Simulated assay, not measured.
Amino acid sequence: MTSFVHVDQPQVHPGVQRAEILFGRFNEVRRNGASSRHLILLLLVAVLASAMVVVDTLVSNWTEASVLAAWVALCAFAFAALALYADIFRAGFARVAAVFRESAQNRAAARADARFLATAQSDPRVMQELQAAISRRNSDAEVAAGTQPAAPALKAKRSEEGQVPTLYEAMRRLNASRYY
């Protein structure tokens, strides 16, 4: 009796896959126009680090006045480098600040949603309003699915808005439109 053994072997070596991913990332970086400035900044930092090593070996034999003059020159060089690359630093700090701001807004929205749901669980009137809003949304979605696609202007407006309002914001808007 003959039996066959089928062993599933990968068609591509895992090292080749990792290399392809690495080369793809290099190509993405190369396609971006701002990468050369970042490489120049990295080179500047490397030169500064090597200069610090050389200076450390030389400073051990210097007098205090020479060390002071070297520190003044180094600080002048550092401030010149900061002035030269101020736009890169400003853009980086702006991105970091935007990430922190967005995460703070997300946390605040999550806290507001948690407070609203806790209120809805303890107050039957709020729960009834929430269920009515959900059923209205579901019925609106069913009506929209049965009709023709929305106009391009409406789609552009929705894409500009970008974010779906939180549950708290949606209920606040609903209640504000009802009572005022």
Rank of each mutant, 00 (worst) to 15 (best):
F116A: 03
V72P: 01
A104H: 00
S60M: 11
E64C: 01
R31F: 13
S36Y: 14
E129K: 14
R111D: 02
Q131D: 11
N175V: 07
R25F: 14
A150K: 08
P152W: 12
A34Y: 12
V59I: 13
T166G: 01
A34D: 04
D123Y: 03
V16T: 15
D123N: 03
R90A: 11
S35M: 15
R178L: 05
C75H: 03
P152C: 11
Y168Q: 10
A114C: 05
A49S: 04
N138P: 01
F100H: 05
E102A: 11
A73G: 11
P152H: 03
V55F: 07
A78R: 15
L74K: 04
R115V: 15
S60P: 00
R101C: 00
N32I: 04
A97Q: 02
M52W: 15
E102F: 02
F23L: 13
A150T: 08
S36P: 01
E129D: 11
T63K: 13
A132I: 13
A49G: 12
S50T: 14
G162V: 11
N32L: 05
L44R: 07
R31T: 13
S122H: 02
E160V: 05
A80C: 08
L84E: 06
V7L: 09
F89V: 10
F89A: 14
A176N: 13
S35N: 03
D113C: 08
E64A: 09
L82G: 07
A176S: 07
A97M: 08
A83L: 05
L167I: 05
A86I: 15
T166H: 01
V53T: 13
D140H: 12
A120F: 10
A78H: 02
R37M: 10
R25T: 09
Q121E: 07
D87A: 09
M52A: 03
A120D: 01
H38Y: 02
R111H: 04
N106H: 01
K157M: 14
A65I: 15
E161D: 08
S103Y: 00
T166C: 02
A86C: 10
I88F: 06
K157D: 07
I21R: 04
R125S: 12
T166A: 03
L42S: 07
V126R: 13
V5R: 05
G15E: 12
P149F: 04
A114P: 02
A120T: 02
S177F: 03
R31C: 08
A46P: 01
M52K: 14
Y168W: 08
I40K: 15
E102N: 14
S36C: 09
F23R: 03
A91F: 06
R101M: 00
V45T: 14
A145C: 06
A109N: 00
M1L: 14
A86M: 15
A104Y: 00
F89C: 12
S139V: 13
L154V: 04
G162I: 10
S60A: 15
P14D: 12
H6F: 14
